[in-house]
Design a protein around this nucleic acid. Structure first.
Length: 561
RNA sequence: GGGUCUGUAGCUCAGAUGGAUAGAGCAAUGCCCUUCUAAGGCAUGUGUCGGGGGUUCGAUUCCCUUCAGGCUCACCA
């Protein structure tokens, strides 16, 4: 970025400031053309000369400064070449100096980011459909922390609703305490599914479900203790998965937490004259063409939207957030637009700081997932399969490895997490074991392998001794690698601005690819100690960026594999 | 039907605020381990950038239109 500023300063064109020029500078496709370029086509009309002519004249008149090595004109482009050796050297030195802090910043100082992610449902299985919200949210959590923000991770539990009355009914009829203690959520799911089957035949069961939910609402001792037990079992189980994914939450305030905070919302809406009655229900209407937002059912019960309104207001009061992110699938685009708009209409200017970080849906090869049909893939099973596969490959390729189990865990889990973070959030995906268990090419194991390779090489080369000759990294591979390493800090910022961890994924991926090219072309453990030193430094810098980049994604890097 | 998102190689996807012959991975074929981890590298091929207009010196990128698909549109969350 500094280079672009420098170039903008030395190019003189009448009527254009350095700022104007800076915005016009682009990167050439071909390395041989130069490192930066200024297209001259747009000046043609004004200067009444051909772009080619303008470029040639600028090439002759532009005064080079220290960091710009050459200025040439090619087909209407003014191309700049920088001092590559100097650039590579500076990049390496910066990274080694800053170490793990490379890419850190304080731009988020004193700012809180609330992240609502994962948000699992009590007594429901944790399946691959929950993977995206969980790992995208967790990654953004770390990305914002890296930039100096204070991240607050909120697991907005789905722990309220008539379904729990149904579940208690089912438990009373067919539940087996021991089985639930043993099989956890899977056991609860069985009786829940059975309830729905039986309710088809016997409508009275639904009445019982409503009855038991009413008991929960009324604070009935027995109902509450069963419900809390289900909650405990679910959280205990899901915590194991979170541990494997290295994910942390600061709050588990879910839907039930807001039960006593919704009347205030309704009162405020009424007082501001936003509440309207429609078919017996209470709604807030919009003038932007969106359908009305339902905040109270005709039977007086509150709804999803009411709860999110209460939650947003609570979070603003409690955290005074700079931004509040909702990492939720795009199916709920309309819902969040409505909720945010209602808050805006209520006069809360901070409603502009609420962001729906949406993402595409996951389906299975034979169609959409359905808990009721049992058409789901458990996340734990996917993780276990991936780890098992990784273990098998280790047995085959490196059977003497010390801690095979721990390494397989890092690789298998990493592969799954990576698969959810490698593409733009918005893309839909079809889950397939074939794809997710392929560890070749653009995958976590590829990057981890590259990292292990860095570690291995560094162990062999030993410490840096004596002078450093940076001509050891004066080649295209090293330069391209340095360019990628140099982009890391800006990429983290971009990822935070766009709420897009995949930007980090891709940069780390590209970095690993380029390192492998460098590794194949240039021997790091060179006979010449000074040259070797420079290459060791580049390898160390690469290792730092890969490790930290993967840390932001929530993927561990084994030092050997 | 309204709103909204997506459409780039056989498949999965990148393509920053428009810029020079549109890039990766997978899959296929053939090479490269007597020196640093071959879970690697190199080479080979395919594109009406969904279609059609427009703006521009220049459009995969911006605007309009059209086609296809996903999601969504009141008492579930």
């Amino acid at each position: 970025m500094d280079y672009i500023k420098e170039i903008a300063k030395i190019v003189k064109i009448d009527g254009y400031t350095a700022d104007d020029i800076e915005k016009m500078i682009v990167l050439p496709k071909e390395l041989s053309l130069g490192d930066y370029s200024l297209p001259c086509f747009r000046f043609a009309k004004e200067l009444k000369k051909s772009p080619a002519q303008i470029a040639i004249e600028l090439a002759n008149t532009t005064v080079k400064n220290g960091i710009i090595k050459s200025v040439t004109a090619v087909n209407g482009y003014l191309n700049f070449t920088i001092d590559k050796a100097e650039f590579t050297k500076n990049t390496i030195l910066t990274i080694l100096k800053e170490g793990q802090n490379y890419g850190s910043s304080d731009i988020g100082k004193n700012r809180v980011i609330c992240l609502d992610y994962s948000s699992i449902n009590i007594a429901k299985p944790f399946h691959i459909g929950h993977l995206s919200t969980t790992v995208i949210g967790a990654s953004l959590y770390r990305i914002f922390n890296k930039l100096g923000y204070k991240s607050e991770g909120i697991n907005h539990l789905g722990d309220w609703g008539t379904q729990f009355g149904k579940l208690i009914t089912a438990y009373k009829l067919w539940g087996d305490k021991n089985d639930i203690e043993k099989r956890g959520v899977k056991s609860l799911l069985d009786i829940y599914v059975k309830f729905h089957q039986e309710a088809e035949k016997d409508e009275k069961l639904n009445d019982q479900g409503r009855y038991w939910f009413k008991k929960i609402e009324d604070g009935d001792k027995e109902a509450l203790s069963i419900f809390e037990w289900f909650k405990e079992i679910t959280l205990k189980e899901v915590q194991k998965t979170y541990d494997r994914l290295h994910i942390h939450f600061d709050s588990y305030a879910g839907e039930s937490f807001y039960n006593d905070k919704m009347q205030a919302v309704l009162d405020a809406l009424k007082q501001k004259g936003l509440l309207e009655e429609s078919d017996g229900a209470m709604v807030v209407k919009f003038d932007n063409g969106d359908p009305p937002c339902l905040v109270q059912r005709s039977d007086g019960a509150t709804l999803y939207a009411t709860r999110d309104l209460a939650a947003a207001i609570y979070r603003k009061n409690h955290y005074d957030f700079y931004k509040c992110l909702y990492v939720v699938a795009y199916q709920q685009n309309l819902h969040f637009r409505q909720v945010f708009n209602v808050l805006k209409m209520m006069g809360y200017d901070w409603s502009n700081d609420l962001v729906h970080v949406n993402f595409g849906m996951v389906s299975l090869e034979d169609g959409a997932m359905s808990t009721r049909k049992g058409n789901i893939v458990f996340l734990e099973d996917v993780l276990d399969n991936a780890v098992q596969k990784a273990y098998g490959i280790i047995e085959e390729k490196n059977p003497n490895l010390d801690d095979k189990k721990a390494t397989a865990e890092k690789i298998g889990v990493g592969a799954i997490v990576f698969s959810a973070l490698q593409n733009n959030r918005i893309k839909d995906t079809v889950f397939s074991y074939d794809k997710v268990l392929n560890f070749d090419g653009e995958t976590a194991p590829y990057v981890q392998y590259t990292y292990a390779r860095c570690c291995s090489v560094l162990a062999k080369t030993g410490e840096i001794e004596g002078d450093v000759d940076f001509s050891g990294v004066e080649n295209n591979e090293a330069l391209e690698l340095a360019k990628l390493l140099d982009k890391y800090p800006q990429t983290i910022i971009d990822a935070s601005v766009k709420y897009e961890p995949s930007l980090v994924t891709r940069l780390v991926m590209d970095t690993a690819q380029m390192f492998n090219k460098f590794y194949l072309e240039h021997r790091i453990n060179d006979e010449n100690q000074a040259i070797k030193n420079a290459r060791i430094m580049l390898t160390q810098a690469t290792k730092i960026v890969i490790e930290d980049g993967f840390r932001l994604l929530g993927i561990q890097c084994p030092t050997k594999m």
